[in-house]
Design a protein around this nucleic acid. Structure first.
Lengths: 226, 226
DNA sequence: CCCTCGCAACATAGATACAAGAAAGATGCA
DNA sequence: TGCATCTTTCTTGTATCTATGTTGCGAGGG
């Protein structure tokens, strides 16, 4: 039973993890904007670890398409491409519609549980929307849409959808911020989506979703090029 | 240990890349099946590099969900989930239909170029189909479908679709290849898909694709559970 | 004035060394 | 024999060191 005698309970949080969180925070928060160049050594020094875990962090960030590594030259923060918002939204729409069609296979009881869970999430969004807490709302929005995909049971789609998350957050932060009055509208649209699911109305779901994402997209584009 | 300066004359392939390809080949080809345990050192020795690039390769494979890394314990090959075949096909269908709708935005000249490129790929499939070269055909099949998605210009979708291809290759390798007489049919179906694209007929494309994938899926499931 | 060659600074890529954690097997005791 | 514990060994995690490639700048020749 020899207890280790170390700071019990406190996870040491691996160096690679710290480097990852640190760098990702820099990017997602926007303190490092697209196109900027960073080096392993620079981050290593600031985090206080060696370059090896930083390298690992950079690889993960590259896999998430937040960083782009150039051999022997360095790493640049991937800028959001002009058409990227469109791409993300189209894929989201496709995956969510797929999820909706898949949800139809559930019996009424199971679908009822899904609907209840979704309504719960939507209820949780009214708070951030009223407080105009944009970052919190962005996370709640993401959780809502991800929940739809997750409920469909397609783990592949769920994983991919989740991987879009950080990218969405990055865009949402820019898209929602200048237009806080849209938040309440978004909550209503979420409610309408759940209604469509509860009614097993695929066409209405797709139509509502398209309008919902179109509005978000347009807001984003409007924010980008005033 | 391997002398590094030996083949330094031309090293177009980085050590990390070699380690990655080597390990991925082991997994996708099925020589390493789900649940098996591998270690960095083992691969490093077999590839003839140090553990550092192997570590990098493992991280990439983990990001692709082909490998699962356990801290301080090792790496296991992720087993293919029971419903994964279904999941993959559904997502493929969704993404390809999305691509088709996107292709409609192209003008006739651009669409004509796409169609011609696709026909080229289909023509290249007749050889493997007649020779019943199943692995080559599987790659050509994947290239065809990926080309459709790539032509749509959605890089996000394209990347995800490519990662699905690896999973599908892996499943195909594991399930003894179904009926070789189907290969010629598949080529014809590919041709029909291109025709639908050339005619800008979304409905026909979706219908043909669904039948195409359904048949593939059924063949796959039939091979898996005899 | 412009072009080119060469050198220095800097960045990564890979190898190696070392430390620490976890599991299997060996060992001693009741 | 059965169990607790200790040791051994295998594994990863991190640091450091060396090699190599890329960039940028400046001197020198046309």
């Amino acid at each position: 039973m020899a207890d280790t005698g170390h700071e019990a309970g406190r996870a040491p949080l691996a160096a690679a993890e710290r480097a990852y969180e640190f760098t990702k925070e820099l990017i997602v928060s926007g303190r490092l904007s697209g196109g900027e160049l960073i080096s392993e050594g620079e981050i290593a020094e600031r985090v206080g670890v060696s370059r090896t875990p930083v390298r690992e962090a950079f690889l993960r960030l590259q896999a998430e398409e937040l960083l782009r590594l150039f051999p022997k030259r360095g790493a640049v923060v991937v800028p959001l491409a002009p058409g990227e918002g469109e791409d993300v939204l189209e894929v989201r729409e496709a995956l969510e519609c797929l999820a909706m069609r898949r949800l139809l296979r559930l019996d009424d009881v199971a679908l009822g549980r899904v609907v209840e869970r979704l309504r719960e999430i939507v209820r949780g969004q009214t708070g951030p929307a009223q407080r105009v807490d944009t970052p919190a709302f962005a996370r709640a929005d993401q959780a809502f849409h991800l929940a739809i995909v997750a409920a469909s049971g397609n783990v592949l789609a769920e994983r991919f959808y989740a991987s879009l998350g950080d990218r969405q957050l990055r865009m949402a932060a820019q898209a929602l911020h200048p237009r806080p009055e849209r938040l309440a509208v978004l909550v209503n649209e979420h409610g309408a989506l759940v209604d469509a699911i509860a009614d097993r109305d695929v066409a209405r779901f797709e139509e509502t979703l398209r309008a919902h994402l179109d509005a978000t997209h347009r807001a984003f584009e409007a924010a980008r090029r005033p």
